[in-house]
Amino acid sequence: MAGLRARQKADKNRRILEAATTLFREVGYDSARIEDIAMRAEVSVGTFYNYFENKGDILVAAVSMEVEEVLEAGKSIVENPPATTLAALQTLINQYYDHSLVYLSKEMWRTAMAISIQQPESPFSRRYTELDSRLCDQVSMLVQKLQLRGAVMPGIDAAAVGQMVFNNLNLMFIEFAKDETMPLDALKEKVARQTRPLANLISSPKI
């Protein structure tokens, strides 16, 4: 019985989250109403508040779902990366970017970024920062894996390089989110161009 209740609870949570993110895309985050989200999810407004305190909670849940899925997909790349440093870095970066608009629109990303900056001590901001840190750590783990394999020179600070790569891909994603007209392929091309010189600098000569 407990298992059934848990599945029902998870199903309602997912329905509310999917209804909210769909409505955010259609009318914008600011214009979306709790009542409309509840109606789309086929739950009462009271039930909505059993799961989320406000729209900000839904937004952080969407960001969390996005990043958790990206991190899970990135594990296989880190465990068995492409042979060259550039190919490995770009494969992981593209994995992040390709999934970035599955649950969130650019407008939703801008809102999430703004909340995290405007309310730095809020639970939302702390969660957002934690997710960024986990992504950064995964990039560093990839560089470390490449170093163990011999693709990256042994004297390189793999953790610092991973942080540099993440900081750049994150900054470029912010620019992408700010520009509604920029296509995803343009973002990926720009970051590939920026990643190439660094990858060449840290790669072992034999690679």
Results as ranks from 00 to 15, higher is better:
Arg5Val: 10
Lys188Val: 13
Gln118Cys: 09
Thr91Leu: 11
Leu23Gln: 01
Ala114Phe: 13
Ala151Glu: 12
Ala19Pro: 00
Lys12Pro: 00
Leu148Gly: 11
Ser105Asn: 07
Ile174Ser: 13
Phe124Leu: 04
Asn54Ser: 12
Val191Ile: 13
Pro81Leu: 11
Leu23Asn: 00
Thr91Met: 12
Ala10Met: 07
Met172Phe: 08
Arg149Cys: 01
Ser133Val: 10
Gly28Val: 02
Glu35Gln: 10
Val78Lys: 12
Arg33Glu: 04
Asp185Thr: 14
Asp36Lys: 04
Ile77Arg: 00
Val45Trp: 00
Asn168Tyr: 12
Ile115Gly: 00
Ala38Pro: 02
Glu107Pro: 02
Ala19Phe: 00
Glu107Gln: 15
Leu131Cys: 06
Ala83His: 13
Ser116Asn: 05
Tyr51Arg: 07
Arg25Gln: 13
Asn54Phe: 03
Ser133Trp: 06
Ile202Trp: 01
Phe48Glu: 01
Ser100Gly: 05
Arg110Thr: 10
Lys206Phe: 09
Met164Ile: 14
Asn54His: 07
Pro81Tyr: 05
Phe166Ile: 01
Ser105Lys: 03
Asp157Leu: 11
Ala38Glu: 02
Ala159His: 09
Asn200Glu: 13
Ala83Phe: 10
Ile93Ala: 12
Gln95Asn: 14
Lys106Asn: 11
Val27His: 03
Lys75Ile: 12
Ile115His: 02
Gly56Glu: 15
Leu23Cys: 00
Gly150Thr: 09
Leu92Cys: 04
Gly150Val: 09
Ser203Pro: 09
Ile117Cys: 03
Met65Gly: 15
Met113Leu: 09
Leu101Met: 11
Arg134Cys: 01
Lys75Asp: 14
Leu23Ala: 05
Val78Phe: 10
Ala87Gln: 10
Leu59Ala: 08
Val102Lys: 14
Leu135Cys: 06
Lys178Ile: 08
Met108Lys: 04
Ala87Ile: 08
Ala10Asn: 04
Ser44Gln: 11
Ala186Val: 10
Thr21Arg: 05
Met113Asn: 10
Pro81Gly: 08
Ala62Arg: 06
Ser133Tyr: 11
Arg127Trp: 03
Gln95Gly: 10
Cys136Asp: 04
Glu35Asp: 12
Thr85Asp: 05
Val27Asn: 07
